[in-house]
Design a protein around this nucleic acid. Structure first.
Lengths: 124, 124
DNA sequence: CAGAATCCCCTATGATACTG
DNA sequence: CAGTATCATAGGGGATTCTG
């Protein structure tokens, strides 16, 4: 194997201190809806309604909160058009896009192995 | 660019349905402490006390809960030695190790970009 | 259509004390 | 040392209603 876990861990040692901003970002990105929103936005742009309908089970409140958080982190960009039927579009920023690239393989792995994990679905 | 976000999203479409086990695993792995514990275990084996001291800010309860969850998911293996001074060692399973390999690059990216994100540290 | 504001519930998270 | 049990709390998260 080429990648040493010890190396990985060492390089992220900072994350183990409670004050590290990594902790915060981790909490935002890894939050229940964070990833789903980011993933949905991966397409390019999405409108509020699209996001709400696209992410099964998300409430308006959580969508709003999550979007604000991600926007505050500079991962998502919000653009509102001053039209009569209000239209707002959300899109990934360059930073967000970059992050998604790292998230992709992980999501893939999880999707593949999710049903292997015992804790998720009772085998009995 | 070689990787299309649309492709990424498409391949994880299942994650958007609330019932998908991916959601559960996501919640476990991406939970506040999940990653930290997995990361700490990356070294090989760690004892209860080591984990508790190694992860800044985690409470006993949360450590216990997180460990059980991850153990239930088959990501972590618990081994207790029937000695007089109780000794228990936790280690990543093959599955957990595999997961960590995917988590590494992500953690790295986050660690590097964390301070770029506005929402994490007040500039004022 | 987009979202802000409210009310409410439940679970995640914590601090502490207790036990094998 | 390695947990478990208990109690308490904050905030995540949901449903509903209201406004621009």
């Amino acid at each position: 194997m080429a990648v040493s876990l010890a190396e990985i861990r060492e390089s992220h040692a900072a994350a183990f201190s409670a004050a590290c901003p990594t902790r915060v970002v981790l909490d935002h990105v890894m939050s229940k809806w964070g990833i789903l929103v980011l993933l949905t936005l991966g397409d390019g742009t999405a409108r509020w309604g699209e996001l709400r309908r696209g992410i099964d089970g998300i409430s308006e409140k959580m969508l709003a909160t999550t979007l604000k958080t991600l926007e505050g982190d500079g991962l998502v960009q919000r653009t509102s058009y001053p039209e009569v039927p209000p239209r707002v579009e959300y899109a990934l920023t360059a930073l967000g896009h970059d992050l998604m690239l790292r998230l992709g393989p992980l999501m893939e792995w999880i999707a593949v192995h999710a049903d292997q994990m015992v804790g998720t679905a009772a085998s009995d």
